[in-house]
Design a protein around this nucleic acid. Sequence first.
DNA 1: AGTTGTGAATCGATTCACAGCC
DNA 2: GGCTGTGAATCGATTCACAACT
Lengths: 232, 232
Amino acid sequence: MSGPAGEVPAAQPVAGLEAAGVPTVRPVPPATVGRLPGYLRALTELSVLGVRTTSSERLAALAGVGSAQLRRDLSWLGSHGVRGVGYDVRRLRGRVADALGVESDLAVVIVGIGRLGHALADYLRAEGGGFRVAALVDTDPGVVGSAVAGLAVEDDKDLEDVVRREGAVLAVLATPVQAAQRVCDRLVSAGVRGILAFTPARLAVPDGVTVRAADVAAELQILAFHTRGTPA
Amino acid sequence: MSGPAGEVPAAQPVAGLEAAGVPTVRPVPPATVGRLPGYLRALTELSVLGVRTTSSERLAALAGVGSAQLRRDLSWLGSHGVRGVGYDVRRLRGRVADALGVESDLAVVIVGIGRLGHALADYLRAEGGGFRVAALVDTDPGVVGSAVAGLAVEDDKDLEDVVRREGAVLAVLATPVQAAQRVCDRLVSAGVRGILAFTPARLAVPDGVTVRAADVAAELQILAFHTRGTPA
DNA sequence: AGTTGTGAATCGATTCACAGCC
DNA sequence: GGCTGTGAATCGATTCACAACT
């Protein structure tokens, strides 16, 4: 048994003006969105390898899903494979990146530059994945001003300015739990629309803002569930 | 819009000897398992607050789900609420922890003590969550032997011995990508049954072993999807 | 009166299997 | 001959709404 993690909270219902003859894009189902990053990675690998064309069978194997599911998922993007041939790797990669909204590197602000924030900054600078680490923010006067991952850490009191300056819509929250909700509120008020929180607490956000919790303890608990039953 | 992350790969089908009069436990659905950690946290909060009894309504609000869903989820655990009254917080907390398999603190080994591994070690030591950080392992001679989170970092070459010594069935993998699959294989051969991987690559594991990927780039990509459409 | 546990209904996601196209 | 895109079938998960119980 195995399997990657990832789930998406809610669908984005699209105004139903289909009747008016406007060809509305059908909303991509949450479960599909959760798999798109896997497809993107697989396609990037193939692309690097110099592969020009791939079948749904091969791509699905790389991404760890069934080929029928892959084809169904791609059909939501209005994809253009060629029957009898397969998909053009480069074109499809572009299509998936576009659907996710990571064509042009999006600005991400990381708040809380402890060991975890530092590690995440390094990782995102190196791996990329379609993002630009635009700024790092912390409260600690001993950290503010120091260089981390090639950026000068900025002062928490300027958080809103930093977010606006960089036009960041995404943020990574790596502060202690106590500060999380306050920082979250300020991020949202400054225009952030998506927050990846490494905090165990549930964060309250207004509609239109998405929070994803990266909760290590919860992940381990789920793993613990699966290791039950076969005690060795 | 908001929502925590978390999904569970596959169900554990139970041998169907119901006909023989044996009261088999019905398998808990994956979606339910994914929500149990949230319930556990909410129940722990209530318990700390000194609350003895709670309704499904209140508990569901704390966990961020609907009350009907909460009741349905708990019904898989054969839970014993009292009609007209609610659930006994302490008892229910025990029941959920038990279902997850985290009643007695499980041993966890962390491999790769870079900044990320160090941060995770600190976090798991502090937050607990039903686990005992049993050992830290790294290859770097400059790190091996140093004290991190109150433990001496051990040498990677002793990985298998360490896992067996501690009887660890869970591991956290925080090594560079290149080493991930090799370390994974060794963990599995030493008896580890669940791996939380902070590596973007898909890991191949035999049946009976569960991998959950904590992929920061993928999470951000999913967030990016939700921020599309409303360019603010 | 208040709340649970659960059938029945609904909704969404996955899989099958094949017509349609290259 | 091979492979995609998708209707139809299946499977699972969520929600409704109420009977059963304290």
